[in-house]
Design a protein around this nucleic acid. Sequence first.
DNA 1: TTCCACTTTATAATGGTTCTAAATAGCTGT
DNA 2: ACAGCTATTTAGAACCATTATAAAGTGGAA
Lengths: 132, 132
Amino acid sequence: MKFIEKLRNSGLRPTKQRLQICEVLFNTERTFHFTINELEQKIKDKIDNKISLATIYNTVHAFEKKGYLKQIPVNSNQTYFDTNITDHHHFYNLKDGKLIDLENSDVGPINIKRKIDGKKIKSIEVLVKLED
Amino acid sequence: MKFIEKLRNSGLRPTKQRLQICEVLFNTERTFHFTINELEQKIKDKIDNKISLATIYNTVHAFEKKGYLKQIPVNSNQTYFDTNITDHHHFYNLKDGKLIDLENSDVGPINIKRKIDGKKIKSIEVLVKLED
DNA sequence: TTCCACTTTATAATGGTTCTAAATAGCTGT
DNA sequence: ACAGCTATTTAGAACCATTATAAAGTGGAA
Ligand SMILES: [Mn+2]
Ligand SMILES: [Mn+2]
Ligand SMILES: [Zn+2]
Ligand SMILES: [Zn+2]
């Protein structure tokens, strides 16, 4: 199985739970955005055994640290994650709290002219809030 | 007092607490970013009477709704607010969780080419994460 | 197989935020 | 100035996403 290698190469043991979460997160036609609650539901729908909520949190954080998931900065009581780890930007639909990927060509290059010394830029993220 | 008018014109009664919070938030040399905890501290430092935490939350939300404060989208367990309500972008220092204003001239105009029909753009916000 | 560090798990704890309902204080009309 | 009404404040409880705990289970090296 392809995910076993991926996990081993990251120093993460390929446990049953992690492999199942990999299936849900990465064995998909397209990338997607999710909150932990939504992921918990997806997992319940797709697998038969139970995975504890703590393991879901642990795994998501482990995957994020390894760079397999990204957190999206939005104002919400829940944390949003993205399986699309390429540099890209987002529409945020205030009505339903859903994120939509923006292609870089939809936004154009962003060139930050100001520098803060001793610091380097880790990421540049654009959030475009949508209303009716 | 200038804040009395401001509040009355917004349909908010100019209570002692609101006026004191106005002093802390708006009677300043420059704009600033804050969390509720930080604001609570600032209030404790600057005024003698106590203002309850509930009132601070209520007031911040009331001011935000009236457009006197903005929320900044960042990934944190606390909500960040800004007394600078002009359209502008931010550096986010991951080390200490502090925000720094970016001038629009530091970022350049952002032109979102894609449209979502039935929706209009409410805001465009750029967050530039900084690391060492 | 043995062993141990890593992982999972149920559950408790944490902490920012929101809710509740009773007390207080603006404001309008008299 | 006063009454009456509504908005506001407040202490404390409730909420709930997330993190911590610590005991049981598991992967994999030897
Ligand atoms: Mn979540
Ligand atoms: Mn806060
Ligand atoms: Zn995305
Ligand atoms: Zn700002």
